[in-house]
Amino acid sequence: MNAVTSQLVMGIIPLVIGIGLIYWIKRRKFYRRNAVGAEGFSSFEASVFIRFIERVGRWIAYALIILGILLIWSWRQMKKDKEKKQQQVEVQSTR
Rank of each mutant, 00 (worst) to 15 (best):
N2H: 09
N2I: 06
A3F: 12
V4L: 15
T5F: 09
I12E: 10
I13P: 12
I13R: 06
P14Q: 02
P14N: 03
P14K: 05
P14S: 07
P14D: 12
V16H: 00
I17R: 05
I17S: 04
G20W: 13
L21G: 04
L21V: 04
L21S: 10
I22Y: 03
I25R: 01
K26Q: 15
R28S: 12
K29R: 14
K29F: 01
K29H: 06
F30L: 11
F30E: 14
R32G: 05
R33E: 13
R33H: 05
R33I: 07
A35S: 05
V36P: 00
V36N: 11
G37N: 04
A38S: 00
E39I: 03
F41Q: 13
S42M: 12
S43N: 01
S43V: 00
F44C: 01
F44N: 02
V48Q: 09
F49M: 14
F49H: 13
F49R: 08
F49D: 09
F49C: 12
I50R: 14
I50T: 14
R51M: 09
G57R: 04
W59S: 12
L64S: 06
I66W: 07
L67I: 10
L71M: 15
I72D: 05
I72T: 06
S74M: 01
R76F: 08
Q77S: 14
K80D: 15
D81H: 09
D81Q: 11
K82F: 11
Q87H: 05
Q87V: 00
V89R: 15
E90W: 01
E90T: 02
E90V: 05
V91A: 15
S93P: 01
T94W: 05
R95A: 11
